[in-house]
Nucleic acid binder design. Structure first.
Lengths: 204, 204
DNA sequence: ATAATATGCGGAGCACCGCTCCGATTGTCA
DNA sequence: TGACAATCGGAGCGGTGCTCCGCATATTAT
């Protein structure tokens, strides 16, 4: 049996070089211009024609997917490791906060995420699905312990975190409020109303 | 002295006709294609040249502003009227919900709002500033009665509502969850029995 | 009614975008 | 080394936002 290492990777040497060069340049350009960066610009700065770029990455999302895969894997792993935490609700909060910070990696990232959240078949969807499954387990565990509202599902959570990331993304002046907004939302999901431990008693 | 009724409106008769025709067509096209609608398309369907469109509305925002002004005025008035309500926190909730639904008028509207939220000088900023001031009074009143977290300001609120509108905007499949997400956030802002009652009725 | 003025019109033109297509180039293997 | 297939690169297409300016016309004065 001939070993075709990775069928998704190019075979020829020059192709492989270009593939990696594009990826590296894309990382830089997307870092500068956000997820809506000009593909022509990426090709130009990678000393590559449009055709080459498009053959390696048929869609913008396919390119983004490669840029984000590492982050997704890391978050999935973190979710798995947090699953053995003693404090399920705090574990969930910590993971979500990590997700939110990851969303700030590139401008426009929350938008790209939301667009493909429920759009199966799109490259980005596939690559973040496993991460979301792992996060879903974290959520269920916290709900099982009775500290988190039961009428919230993983998609709600993902959407809300995306939304907070989006706020900071759109209005840089609000980026400073990001952690605060995150807290507001997390408090609202908790059944222990941490915002007002005193008012909680009299509510009964 | 000749009466110059409204200096912002065109003087010549044909100009005035075009102005209104553009506005009317824009309303339709933006309704179909969202706030990112092609300006060329608007000009075409209004039987008008690009130059004409740009003279009357120098920027896309200037055009949007005219489309949205009515809604803003209505919301500002509603805020003013709600200020005499007996239940300040419920008045606030009602107004915010109204705002959220207004955000669904055009696709992409939450994005346009957030972009110009803190960017003074832009046309949209000016036109929604008064509305936000009115809303701010509603918020302060609710906080004064001790039912709403004191560490929230008007901008936070506006941003959060925008964010929820944005979620529905990006992923139509999530639009059904919009009201629910709104409830989650509002509960989190309240200092009284946050979740339990509402959480019981909604499952899944 | 006619002439003069200035106001408004419209679209050609520029630079950019995403994306496709195909002749030229180049790596690979016999 | 030669032949062949894999890969390249950019011209080209239709779209965008936006500007600029010669021309048409509404308005006003005569």
């Amino acid at each position: 049996m001939t070993e075709k290492a990775d069928p998704s990777r190019p075979q020829r040497a020059d192709a492989q070089r270009n593939y990696e060069r594009i990826l590296s340049v894309a990382k830089a350009v997307v870092g500068e211009q956000g997820t809506q960066a000009s593909l022509r610009d990426i090709a130009r700065r990678a000393d590559v024609g449009m055709g080459t770029l498009y053959r390696h990455f048929p869609t913008r999302e396919a390119l983004l997917q490669e840029l984000l895969r590492q982050g997704f894997d890391r978050l999935a792993a973190k979710a798995a490791s947090l699953e053995s935490s003693d404090e399920p609700d705090q574990a969930l909060a910590e993971w979500l906060q990590d997700l939110m910070r990851g969303m700030a990696a590139y401008r426009g990232l929350p938008g790209s995420m939301m667009t493909t959240l429920l759009d199966e078949g799109t490259p980005l969807y596939a690559s973040c699905a496993t991460m979301r499954v792992a996060a879903g387990r974290l959520l269920k565990r916290a709900q099982g312990h009775g500290h988190i509202r039961p009428d919230v599902d993983g998609t709600d959570l993902f959407a809300l975190v995306n939304a907070v990331g989006w706020i900071a993304d759109q209005a840089p002046a609000l980026a400073a409020r990001q952690e605060h907004l995150f807290t507001l939302i997390m408090d609202g999901l908790s059944l222990r109303h941490p915002a007002s431990s005193d008012a909680a008693e009299q509510a009964g």
